[in-house]
Design a binder for these strands. Structure first.
Lengths: 349, 349
DNA sequence: CTGAAAGCGCTTACAG
DNA sequence: CTGAAAGCGCTTACAG
């Protein structure tokens, strides 16, 4: 069992106050006293009890990062970026997975506390609604990433989803596609994000004088690869299949690529594909994936810096922080096919 | 600010003891008293302070899951499995990323404590050595996943890496390959795991009467996709390039697949590829990836159950728990090519 | 069934 | 520069 401050104090023949001062590098300690205490500390292998310290100080020093699914690459990569930025500021963040379940998102975001003991929370909720947010009891700072939940009055950081979806769609149009599908509208999620992407998609079509065909907008249950496979199967069985697809995330797009290969649909020749997120897989897939790349580093930094400000007592009204994004054109929407460039070089269209 | 037990007690006109009893569903409370207290609890919106509770009880109720990289699919998928099994047992686990840095692995695994306050730790360390383990001060139960650190005297769960690597290699041999490379031996990691896989690889070659060519065993810095790309480039520039590659993980294999496509090397026709881990990407890649699939669910369950036993006071000697694995044959090692089966059906070999 | 009180291991005004 | 003491918010033997 770890030694306590009191035990160290007894051994060193000083008060606990003095030991505490040494442990915490309090400057005004006589060098001689410090040496004596340090020796006792070493001999006993003292380790401070973080629980006691936290209780006394009224804060745990822990920031919770709440995400739905750890094994969805976008969240994994985002989490890593957040952990990285947080470390730079000396914050310890700990990842909390909710499986996207409302009850669990509520527990940690709305009720605060729970078995968790976070001083603040960064969250990317999928089921939480504005009603939940209004009922929030916890006073710990909260920063939302990705989703803007209407009327929440909560700080959030996000990219301009409407504009990004517009750009993705416009890219397909400008490369000659005319029958463009959209995959990822939501079945059962509140999914403000999906709605915003559909809005951008529609706007781009309309601006180009192209019709919006409801048949081409396919909702999915999740945003996983398997959903992309299903969606493609459905789209290809249409009387008039699409010649391009804008997927609301890269995982859907990778599912589409997979299903297309197995159906003998050539990408990008027969079908152009664009994703969203710029996860690492898309840089190695065959063909490589054109995608919208949100500046994850910036997202993480904005979130963490805002959090730090709130922890420091900043009471400014809730902020809406916007991060940059970029369209990255790769093979799936027209660049040279990856399969065997020397044997069958296929130019863009 | 949240109300305290004492405030609730005053409002209800009872002692804190009684309030505590109600909060914790202690059975012997008079129904009438309970009702009064409950009302006060509701009116004040009481939330217990987990820090105080933990300090008093001498445990935080938190289990730390220590992994090197959150955004490496294998760890993301493993983490999810562990969180799932832990939930089933009522344990709250929190993910702690170390970036594979020795200092950080030490802080949480060896020193215990730190800013973290875990009752127990499940870890998949990459830099930690047996010396560190012997110097361990923390008395919190520790379960290692994946790596067996010699002489640590610590519980661990793993698959039989030698046997698995043997099977992967034997599969390539039995499908007619003769010049089989291995990618993923370590440059700078302690990497017991890599050594074990090399051992299995060598054994399989030897058993088949095939020579072991040192040129074909390529070490990599990390085990990421980019390392796979580099390794393939190096192998293909050999005077006698390989006709098959056993990659020590799927990420390397996906990098190999990518590089092969861009070089015009056909997989599996010119080159068969086998990975290790069975991450989801490999089920959707082109071609899909043959791989060793460790039973992640079982690994997670064994680790969590062992942990629970230790928390319950089990003091049996350190256990070595073995999980099952399975070779999953997909397109990359000989099944029908995925590219466009109808146009160019390629049988296995 | 409930109250008064001790104590978990710290930090920190308050004195001196 | 250092000591004696209070108190963070709980839980839990000890009485009654």
């Amino acid at each position: 069992m770890a030694a306590t401050l009191r035990e160290v104090a007894e051994r060193a023949g000083v008060s606990v106050r003095t030991v505490s001062n040494v442990v915490n590098d309090y400057p005004h300690v006589a060098p001689k006293t410090r040496a004596i205490v340090q020796r006792a500390l070493d001999e006993l292998g003292y380790q401070p009890n973080p629980l006691a310290r936290s209780l006394r100080q009224g804060r745990s020093g822990l920031v919770g990062l709440v995400i739905p699914e750890l094994d969805v690459p976008y969240f994994a990569e985002l989490s890593r970026a957040v952990l990285h930025e947080a470390r730079a500021l000396g914050l310890t963040v700990v990842v909390d997975q909710t499986d996207g379940e409302l009850a669990r998102e509520r527990e940690v975001i709305v009720r605060g506390q729970g078995s968790a003991m976070y001083d603040a929370v960064i969250a990317s909720p999928v089921s939480l609604t504005s009603t939940d947010l209004k009922a929030r009891r916890s006073t710990a700072p909260l920063i939302l990433i990705g989703e803007r939940i209407a009327g929440g009055g909560v700080d959030h950081v996000m990219v301009d989803n409407v504009a990004a979806a517009h750009d993705a769609t416009a890219h397909l149009i400008s490369s000659g596609r005319r029958r463009i599908a959209a995959i990822g509208e939501s079945w059962n999620r509140p999914a403000t994000t999906a709605h915003l992407r559909t809005e951008g998609y529609r706007a781009a079509l309309t601006a180009a004088g192209l019709p919006v065909d409801p048949e081409l907008i396919v909702a999915t249950r999740y945003l996983h690869r398997a959903d992309g496979v299903q969606a493609l199967d459905r789209l290809m069985s249409l009387a008039q299949p699409p010649d391009a697809i804008f997927c609301y995330n890269d995982l859907l797009a990778l599912g589409v690529l997979h299903a297309a290969a197995h159906r003998g649909v050539r990408v990008p020749d027969d079908l152009a594909v664009v994703g969203f997120d710029d996860i690492e897989d898309g840089r190695y897939s065959r063909p490589t994936l054109t995608t919208i790349s949100p500046d994850r580093r910036q997202i993480a930094r904005l979130a963490v810096e805002m959090l730090q400000r709130r922890l420091d007592g900043d009471t400014a009204p809730a902020a809406e922080l916007r991060a940059n994004y970029q369209l990255i054109v790769r093979e799936s929407s027209g660049a040279a096919q990856s399969a065997a460039p020397r044997q069958r070089p296929t130019g863009g269209r």
